[in-house]
Design a binder for these strands. Structure first.
Lengths: 179, 179
DNA sequence: CTAATTTAATTCACTGGTGAAATATGAGTT
DNA sequence: AACTCATATTTCACCAGTGAATTAAATTAG
């Protein structure tokens, strides 16, 4: 597989050429978008690869981590869908897989019988505690050479992007409401 | 679907709680990793959504864009795999789809008859030229509020991350080779 | 020159994820 | 209470992407 640096160099040149043919393209923003997508995708792959020895995939792991991080260790499919950005369909599959491995339990809710309550098991907690520490060195290595200021800036810029994305579809011309 | 800002808030709290149980976790880096993955994923979705009216998906579009950006408008499946981070299997499917729509042609290479030469067609070029401009406002909007310095910093940090990722698996302890 | 190895692309079987429809419960209205 | 309407989850059919095996051509070794 090509190194990411080579892909980026190639993308830089490509956008340079395209922006000569189509001059009103926002080339700087297009570069940043491609850059973000490429780095994000590679990060994703790296996580998937790090999890593979544990025979768990990223979305199953993320779901389990959310349960682990909850004070009461429980949630519902609907809520997990929201926070994992997964569709309900896929959450059913994820829950099936985690139940089969004994990492979570699935039970009916008392208050609202449409709801299903998902809860991490002791075995699930042990699994997380065993799985996490080996990931730490790679997580740290990914940000090697980042100063504290770099980390703050990066965090700020990503959060700003998130905010922009949240408002992308509302008010294409955000004229202030007339009072 | 939950707003990204809510997912981020929830992630922040979750990592806070987990890092109390597992104190040697690199919490700042874990936060940045999750942030990057979440924003990257949402960007991906936004692109996919913007492309949907044109009945083309992200990887098919990316492949076509690479061809479009080439001076000679041609490449090979192997090369496209490298630069799109797609497997060869999937590139076969992508090429099939684009050929069927008449956006590219597929022919045998003269020099190396194992190779297949893929070339964008005039119709493919028109398709790209028609498709791109409507994307520009959203691309710009995603980076609303980014100063030029912000963009430079963001670019620098992403490229640094890319470089780190390229070296993640080589030399976990980068001791200089003994001469 | 022939045999063994490597490289490029494809095919096949499978995993992961999505949209639309089905099922079941809860909530609001008259 | 009976009738909508909305919500939560699951099922079904399909699209997208991957690893292993296959085919064919080029390269290297003997």
């Amino acid at each position: 597989m090509a190194r990411l640096g080579d892909c980026i160099a190639m993308m830089d040149e490509g956008i340079g050429r395209v922006s000569q043919v189509i001059p009103d393209m926002p080339a700087a923003e297009a570069r940043l978008t491609r850059l973000l997508l490429m780095v994000g995708h590679t990060f994703d792959e790296a996580v998937e690869q790090a999890l593979r020895p544990n025979k768990i995939n990223h979305s199953d792991f993320l779901t389990l981590m959310i349960l682990y991080s909850r004070p009461d260790g429980s949630s519902t499919p609907g809520e997990l869908c929201e926070y994992t950005s997964q569709g309900a369909t896929n959450m059913t599959r994820i829950a099936n897989a985690l139940v089969k491995r004994g990492l979570i339990t699935r039970g009916a809710s008392e208050e609202d019988r449409r709801r299903v309550v998902i809860r991490i098991t002791p075995s699930g907690r042990r699994f997380v505690q065993k799985l996490l520490p080996p990931l730490f060195p790679r997580v740290s290595a990914a940000f090697a050479g980042f100063s504290d200021a770099d980390k703050r800036h990066f965090s700020r810029l990503l959060r700003k992007l998130a905010d922009n994305l949240d408002h992308l579809d509302e008010s294409p011309s955000p004229v202030k409401k007339q009072p």
